[in-house]
Design a protein around this nucleic acid. Structure first.
Lengths: 109, 109
DNA sequence: CATTTTTGTAACCTAAAAGCAACACTTTTA
DNA sequence: TAAAAGTGTTGCTTTTAGGTTACAAAAATG
């Protein structure tokens, strides 16, 4: 079973939804749900993934990640702006920042 | 012209590439480039977008954003991990981290 | 200026995504 | 326990993404 298949199946069953019921909520065919869960659909369109994410009340990015369409994590533009400060740092510099934060945290106690 | 169309056209011409040349680099047909730039393709697959991003030497997330497939900004898992770390810091501690980053940046020169 | 070469566009074709309908099997429910 | 509704699965059909070829206009080269 594919990564995306597991993702949909787990969350669907966790909500006690049949494939038909999920399909109805997502406004797609139940057949498509079945194919996605069984890895028979190689390249599903982001649109149907969005419908399914909405129906399952899950973040769109999560299902896109499960489908292998994006890697990493998506964040809001607001947080991204604050984060932009450190985006030019090297991995080693990030490591130093990491240590510094640990130092700050220990200083609390 | 669509958002994605503008995106591809601007970056292609900025690199002095013809649609045929870009298509060759991306291993897709030049017709598809044409259709994407003119907004004739409603739902392009993320796969061809990835090919084009690679050919144009641009981040995959940027073209996905232009296509409307993701919103917000995508960050690497590494940076995401560091972001998770600082969520519990106080404003004053964040200020100290900020200063520390400035210090690191100055140390480079 | 004539002739290649490049470029954008359109017509046609193929393959894959997605829907429709029917099928067997299970679980309700009266 | 028999009818009915629900569930997973499988052909078949429709639609659309993407490729191949062809063609006309523009640009380059002699």
């Amino acid at each position: 079973m594919s990564d995306l298949g597991k993702f949909i199946f787990e969350h669907r069953t966790a909500k006690n939804l049949s494939s038909r019921k999920l399909a109805e909520l997502a406004n797609i065919s139940h057949t498509e749900i079945h194919r996605l869960e069984n890895g028979e659909r190689k390249h599903p369109s982001p649109l149907v993934l969005k419908f399914i994410a909405n129906a399952l009340q899950l973040p769109y990015d999560d299902i896109m990640k499960a489908a292998g369409y994006i890697d990493g994590t998506c964040i809001s533009p607001l947080i991204a702006a604050h984060l932009a400060i450190i985006t030019d740092l090297t991995d080693q510099e990030l490591e130093e920042v990491h240590n510094f934060i640990e130092f700050l945290r220990n200083k609390r106690k």
